[in-house]
């Protein structure tokens, strides 16, 4: 099985570094910050926001199940617990991802 926590964690770390870099442009003046923000208005970055939401949800849902298992709970019901986490995560993603996609990428 793919170690989901590791790969989503690395993806979030990359996002965090990019985020810090963007905030850092504030020290170069308001124009530099506006230029940086203008880049993020591109539909490709909006699509990236949808992917970011999916990554955060996957990391959080998987992290919660792993914590539960590491605390010694739910080993026998692991498939059901993972299924519940996947369904809840999917619902959260749809609730947040659809408006993000429609507003940011499709411009509606």
């Amino acid at each position: 099985m793919i170690p989901l926590q590791r790969w989503t964690g690395i993806a979030l770390l990359i996002y965090l570094l990019l985020h810090i870099r963007t905030i850092h442009t504030l020290s170069e003046g308001p124009q530099a910050f506006d230029r940086a923000l203008a880049v993020f208005r591109h539909p490709l970055f909006k699509l990236g926001e949808v992917a970011l939401l999916a990554t955060v949800i996957a990391h959080a849902a998987n992290g919660l199940t792993l914590t539960l298992f590491d605390l010694g709970y739910g080993h026998r019901a692991r498939r059901r617990i993972r299924m519940v986490a996947a369904v809840a995560g999917g619902a959260l993603f749809l609730a947040g991802g659809v408006p993000l996609f429609l507003g940011g990428v499709m411009g509606r």
Binding site: M1, P3, F69, G72
Partner: peptide, 26 residues
């Protein structure tokens, strides 16, 4: 250990190896 249960799923003797690892972590 990433707690993916691969060892537990495959163990031909049905040992919950992930539980052993989790017990030691705790």
């Amino acid at each position: 250990c990433h707690t993916t249960f691969d060892c537990t799923e495959m163990c031909p003797k049905g040992i919950d190896l992930t539980d052993s690892i989790a017990r030691l972590k705790r």
